[in-house]
Design a protein around this nucleic acid. Sequence first.
RNA 1: GGGCCGUUAACUCAGGAGGUAGAGUAUCUGCCUUUUAAGCAGAGAGUCGCCGGUUCGAAUCCAGCACGGCCCA
Length: 497
Amino acid sequence: MEDLNIVVRERLEKAAELERQDVALYPNGYEVADRIKYLLANSAAKKAEELEADQTAYTIAGRVLSVRSFGKSIFMHIVDSDAKIQIYVQKNLLGEPSYSLARRIDIGDIIRVGGSLFRTKTDELTLAVKDFVLLTKNLRPLPEKFHGLKDIELRYRQRYVDLMVNEQVRETFRKRARIISSIRGFFTERDFLEVETPMMHAIAGGAAAKPFKTHHNALDMDLYLRIAPELYLKRLLVGGFERVFEVNRNFRNEGVSTKHNPEFTMVEFYQAYATYRDLMGLTEELFAQLCREVNEGKTSLEYQGDVIDFCAPWARYTFLEALTTIGDVPQEAVESLEGAVHCARSLGIGIERFEGHGKLLTKIFDLVVEPRLVQPTFIYQYPLEVSPLSRKTQGAPEFVDRFELFIAGREMANAFSELNDPRDQRERFELQLAAFQAGDEEAHQMDDDYIRALEYGMPPAAGEGIGIDRLVMLFTDSPSIRDVILFPQMRPEKKGL
RNA sequence: GGGCCGUUAACUCAGGAGGUAGAGUAUCUGCCUUUUAAGCAGAGAGUCGCCGGUUCGAAUCCAGCACGGCCCA
């Protein structure tokens, strides 16, 4: 206790003093009938005289954000989940001992107040308090009222404080909730079934990434946190659910950056009897709906200074076209492995022994094309080598029917026509196994049960995954993925609290 | 993994030619019944991230470490 700062010590003393006067510091059971946003909405248009004649009693609760105290009256602003309002506590109106309690209230306390609305001299809608209850005592000072909480480390570590004092942070997470809700609605309306598949996998499949490893004691087996739900969702296509989707977390044991958090949220969906081309159209429709529902109907938005226009149809390039026309990659690089090696070297890209032509081209793509794809752009027909679960392109067996969507220089979605030939799938897994043995740690593992499922027959289908965090970044103009994840991953604090 | 930057009061930040620290907010006391970054008067509050080194003396200079940020791989 001795290392607590003076403000906390004083609050503890004040709390003890209030308890000696029989004031409960953490009572419950006090009903709160009204919410500030509805008070504001219902009375926004009412003039001072109308309010005076009205005198309807309201009861609201919230956290005290500011206090302006006079001898026999006090102004406070309190905030609840959605909005804030000014309250006016007058000694004559409230009476003792409540007024004495109100005088002792600290910024950060949670209170319940009852009273009627009026307008101040400056025309601000204000609640005249006739009933005042302390609901929760605050023992730690809130950040400075004008600058708020700016320290990025503190904002992430103590998100609860960040949310308390930074309204735009609350708005970002409200928007995130609306986006996810809108996505669910979009798929449900189109007859997709929302499902939950395992988060713990015996084989971490469905993507190229390093997994987190854990151990189940009772079963005495190692398990991996999933890197993608793909193989389970496709087992459901085998089972007869023709349209499924899942909104959930994936875990990848890789670097942390402004675009990567070790756990991130994806919506992944599969539609039988569709192709990747159908999903391009569906993706455009999804964004159109998101614009209507969370972007106030506007079909463009500003992201970090770039104006992004979602009007369909979006630009489409094949992977190779994009390399040569957008990335200015020389023709010989797309034509031969030697050319690609030369090109990669000239760009300073490190080359691993197990990497073939297709893999090298994707690394070149990431460097010279991806950052230039600011407007929504579909890139399709990817190299087979980097797509072990996608259907081969008819007439071009080195390529697959797959696209990725790029917006603001970032990969936003990945989709393909699903490979449903179990013989081809087994060969692909064997190729991956060879890559793994050659040193590619991210190569896909053999999944015999998945092959068995395909042998029962999976209908021709297409599937897609969309990164929700990056989507939210876009719609909230957030520069870092940590701004759209409530509790981003951090190293533990060493200092005592 | 590499480079650059940051870490000073609860918060936002100054200071930094080496001589043990400042402001505003917040807090405490007093005055104040329409304020809103309320006001006025006064007060308290910091092992300057940690650990070493140089020095008579380090928040300041140097090395290492921790945490964080940005960029690169």
